[in-house]
């Protein structure tokens, strides 16, 4: 049965631009109802992956299914059932709020009564009541993003792709945006949202980390954190005066008792092998044990994939 299938699943999804491999063998498996956070620095291939899933780019190799349909052959069926909010703002500046919504409702073939009902609901969702006749070009950044989301979901899609929906949006508005996304997931939709803000990862039920075209790790936030402590050891943090010089000294121990060391705010964090720090490191500062954050998880994986630090404990 198609509906029992995952919302998105891909096998070896790859995209080349000329000789440059922007997306490299990505395997995805997003269950229905999930909020999948697609993390990664700029240029890591998030947009390219999402575009392939929406049928906007053809994969160079690999395959994928979205809402139970093949992305290479069933684009038409997929388009009816997904919503997509592109990274670049792409509504019509010279149409009003209501006109943009009505236009997209029409493009998805909603009948008159249904269209009015949905446009009205979307104006409420985007909190634009009373500004229906404002030209879209005159809206502020955060408001525009809400309207873009509303236009992308006016036809009640079961799968929603959001490409950096919160870029250029202030923190308070970002929080509200994620609340809206949680509501949509509660309503049964599956969401895949890309971001390069690590803190937004906490809003997601599962995460994938892209780096240089590859999916480094994926899983639920808790599982990822647990995995880090099980595979490696504990996280220790200390406040030191000259953190950069200190880090250089500490790094000598990488592979010799610690797995990774990096600056974390005003402090230095180390990922130890096992439960204890090597004696020399332990004596160098006043360490406190900390719970791993997602940032720890990502920094560790990105650095080890880039070959910047030793990757295993030779215990």
């Amino acid at each position: 049965m198609k509906d029992a299938e995952a919302a998105v699943s891909t096998v070896g999804l790859t995209r080349d631009f000329g000789s440059f491999r922007a997306v490299d063998g990505v395997n995805l498996d997003i269950p229905r109802g999930a909020i999948f956070g697609f993390l990664g620095p700029n240029g890591s291939g998030k947009t390219t992956t999402i575009r392939m899933l929406c049928g906007l780019l053809r994969p160079s190799s690999g395959s994928g299914r979205v809402v139970g349909c093949d992305i290479a052959r069933e684009g038409e069926a997929i388009r009816r059932r997904i919503g997509y909010m592109s990274q670049k703002f792409s509504l019509y500046d010279d149409l009003t709020v209501a006109e943009n919504l009505t236009f997209y409702a029409g493009m998805y073939g909603l009948a008159n009564a249904k269209r009015r009902e949905r446009v009205d609901a979307m104006i409420a969702l985007a909190d634009l009541r009373g500004r229906e006749r404002t030209l879209t070009g005159a809206l502020a950044g955060g408001v525009r993003q809400r309207l873009a989301l509303a236009c992308a979901i006016v036809h009640e899609p079961e799968m929603i792709f959001l490409d950096e929906p919160t870029s250029g949006v202030d923190p308070a508005a970002r929080r509200r945006f994620w609340e809206t996304i949680a509501d949509l997931a509660d309503g049964g939709a599956t969401i895949m949202a890309s971001t390069h803000f690590m803190d937004e990862a906490e809003h997601c039920t599962s995460l994938g980390l892209m780096y240089a075209g590859k999916m480094l790790i994926s899983g639920s936030p808790d599982a990822l954190k647990r995995e880090l402590t099980v595979a490696a050891g504990k996280i220790w943090q200390a406040r030191v005066p000259d953190s950069i010089g200190f880090l250089d000294r500490i790094r000598a121990f990488v592979s010799g008792g610690i797995l990774d060391a990096y600056i974390f705010g005003a402090s230095v964090r180390v990922l130890a092998c096992g439960a204890r720090l090597p004696a020399d490191v332990a004596g160098a500062a006043a360490w406190e044990e900390r719970e791993p954050t997602l940032e720890d998880v990502f920094v560790h994986h990105v650095r080890s994939s880039a070959g910047m630090e030793g990757q295993r404990c030779d215990a």
């Binding site: 049928g55 906007l56 038409e76 388009r79 919503g83 792409s90 509504l91 493009m107 073939g109």
Partner: peptide
């Protein structure tokens, strides 16, 4: 150029 075509292309148009 404005990017609005990208949004149109994901509709069943």
């Amino acid at each position: 150029e404005r990017g609005t075509l990208e949004q149109l292309l994901v509709t069943p148009m």
